[in-house]
Design a protein around this nucleic acid. Structure first.
Lengths: 243, 243
DNA sequence: CGAACCTTTGAAGTGACTCAATGCGTGTGG
DNA sequence: CCACACGCATTGAGTCACTTCAAAGGTTCG
């Protein structure tokens, strides 16, 4: 919950009442094991929203032909399940990729929160819009750049997201994903991901050591991956003034 | 404005007060010519939101290498500019692809609407979540399927969106896009789009006549494109009950 | 009628895929 | 404590989808 408040507090100063609402919104906490599936696509009515307390998770969609795509990575402080809200069945599967703990609340809790505190509604809306912008970026990356650029972009995104809450070296990231999962996230096969890792490594752009990836030349990677850190660009003055 | 109210009314019965708020939210109406740019990416502070009254528009992002990606197509009744809301500069360019007219309002108008009528907030949040789900679908399509499937999926999406407000033959769609723009939307080159159109045509899946595309075998196209019409799956009971 | 733009087609090149084998690290049971 | 199995990463060879480059054919509009 600290991460969430930190993340939201980063964009606007929360009133005590609002912070309290966030806390009460998510009263139930649950642990999940690595590999456990929280929301099974198509199977489940998406009544729940989740706020990540700790761990790494991802949202994915299966295709009829057995292939899988990973549409989103989740870090502590993230709200999960947004894309399922307006539907009568889940549109994506959420999987805990490491041991994780999270706060759970039914989407109907939002009704009360939105009614009592319109700024909460604005915050949720804003984060949905942010998620939108990030999805746009990924669409561009996957649709219009080659594998090298896509991998660079993903690594930068992971580094940026990790750095947002865990304040360690911004140039070291821990994908916590197999190469198959990375492929699912950027639209490539395992084989190709492996080759690209090798390529970036021999070009001294990155360095790998037991699951960590060090970004040796962040500037070059940013040029290559055309990456924009959307979290840096946030601006919420528009709803500050009048509420 | 009729389309907007129809679209929103489709998911929940609007109270007169709410319908009134929607109307007053968007008091200014403007016309744009075909080809005109409404929001220039990076250049502009994204203070405006738009509701499409008539015409066809698209959102795009430019890459430094000169390539372009189209991230979203807009139809009458759509709200545009959502992905720009939380930022101090626009993240995407919006272009009127045909002569268009739309309602314009500053994002700060949302503050008042959210405060007075929390259901309006819920509606906006819901549509952001829907947009999210659609972006996820496109990510899967572009990242994990071949050109034939992507084109099929795009055509089905356009047909579904057109049919939502303009109630004509659901199996005829009017992309109103050049093949270059189609390529930008599904991550292919003009050349390949042309070849794929030919392929789908000779396979008797589609038929083209002066800018229209007839879907000769919608079922086969759906199997091919793995398309889900998200608008059909909407479920907003969750905020009906308690507001 | 001509210019501009869009579409189509061909030929050659390339990034990524598939298939398949090997290597590597870790945990488990004999 | 070794042998083995299992999951993951790497590498090679052949193929395919799509790209690039280039030219020609169609449409539309002034």
């Amino acid at each position: 919950m600290q991460q969430l408040l930190a993340k939201y507090g980063k964009i606007t100063d929360l009133l005590e009442e609002e912070a309290e609402t966030f806390r009460s919104l998510a009263s139930t906490k649950r642990e999940f094991e690595a590999g456990e599936v929280l929301v099974a696509s198509e199977l489940q009515s998406p009544d729940q929203l989740y706020i990540v307390d700790d761990g790494r998770l991802f949202a994915s969609m299966e295709l009829r032909n057995g292939e899988r795509a990973i549409t989103r990575l989740y870090f502590p402080g993230d709200i999960m399940g947004t894309a399922n809200i307006p539907f009568d069945h889940a549109t994506q599967t959420i999987t805990a990729n490491t041991a994780s703990s999270m706060y759970i609340f039914p989407r109907s809790n939002l009704v009360d929160a939105f009614t009592r505190l319109p700024r909460i509604a604005a915050i949720f809306y804003t984060f949905a819009a942010l998620e939108n912008a990030i999805l746009n970026d990924r669409l561009v990356s996957i649709g219009r750049t080659r594998g090298r650029a896509r991998l660079a972009s993903l690594l930068l995104e992971i580094a940026a997201r990790e750095h947002l809450v865990e304040c360690d070296d911004p140039n070291i990231c821990r994908p916590a994903l197999t190469q198959e999962q990375i492929g699912d996230a950027i639209g490539l096969t395992t084989v190709q991901v492996s080759r690209l890792f090798k390529e970036l490594t021999t070009q001294k752009l990155i360095k790998r050591r037991d699951g960590n990836v060090e970004l040796l030349d962040p500037t070059a990677l940013q040029d290559l991956g055309l990456f924009r850190n959307r979290y840096e660009d946030l601006d919420l003055d528009w709803f500050e003034e009048d509420f």
